[in-house]
């Protein structure tokens, strides 16, 4: 089941991308399964207090990604295969690591130190 209970909007990132990311995270973690019904656009818009078009944009993006499927504009369902879940998971991880790497670079760390740092943190 898709849940937006723990959704907290962050500043600086377009809301529709945050909505997409939120759903993808739930797909990656396995809380959302193949065939789950998506919250209706209108309800989600009210729930998050965001423009209906923003939700529409997020859903369109998920649809283009092949992760959800809409039946004649009404209800939308999640469509997942193992391969798609895997793709979402690696995409999310790459994004996370990408952002860590770039902030480390900004701080002037070299690769070797960064890897060591990560190893140390990992073991803690």
């Amino acid at each position: 089941m898709i849940s937006f209970d723990d959704f907290i909007a962050e500043n600086g990132i377009p809301i529709y991308l945050q909505v997409v990311r939120h759903i993808k995270r739930q797909i990656a973690s396995g809380t959302v399964k193949d065939g789950d019904e998506m919250i209706s656009r209108r309800t989600l818009s009210a729930l998050l207090g965001v423009n209906p078009n923003t939700v529409q944009k997020a859903y369109a993006l998920l649809e283009a990604d092949g992760l959800i499927c809409s039946h004649s504009g009404a209800k939308s369902y999640v469509v997942l295969t193992d391969e798609r879940v895997e793709r979402v998971r690696s995409e999310l991880m790459e994004n996370e690591i990408q952002s860590v790497v770039s902030s480390l670079k900004v701080m002037g760390l070299d690769k070797e130190t960064a890897v060591k740092l990560i190893e140390r943190m990992w073991d803690q």
């Binding site: 209108r42 009210a46 207090g49």
Partner: peptide, 9 residues
């Protein structure tokens, strides 16, 4: 805030 949510809904 109640109003905004109802409006959107």
């Amino acid at each position: 805030e109640d109003f905004y949510k109802v409006l959107l809904g």
